[in-house]
Amino acid sequence: MDPISIIGTPKTPTVTFESNGKLEIKGRSIPENSVEFYKPLVDWLEQYLSSPAPLTEVSIKLEYFNTSSSKCILDVFKKLEAIYKSGNDVVILWHYEEDDEDMLEAGEDYQSIIKVPFKMVEMSE
């Protein structure tokens, strides 16, 4: 499978998805139309689902994301949930800046919806 490598912009995140199970979404996700941006990521995971790595480690390091992205991020997580449910190890590393309780809470909101192990990772500024 070809990896995904997208360079971030002021409105969209840097994305690295590799078939060895290392996935990362980093930066800002505040586009007006998030579906357009996230569709290739969800499609990639759909393909990856047929032969995933023994461990899929997903690192989310978002500084900001808008509500339009929040639904798309949930779609990404639902694909990860499907991978986890089919017996593969998956972990979501949800990063948040020290003192950014909103970002921590956003991670916890996802954690309560998605049945995949989450690790909350605090980053010092």
Partner: peptide, 28 residues
């Protein structure tokens, strides 16, 4: 918080509208 999660998980929404998610987020 519950309202936000309910809209996020249960409603399908288009590229244009977030089904009211934005306003709940602003309040939170």
């Amino acid at each position: 918080k519950e309202m936000y999660k309910e809209i996020l998980d249960n409603q399908t929404f288009s590229e244009k509208g977030g089904g009211g998610l934005g306003m709940v987020d602003i309040a939170r």
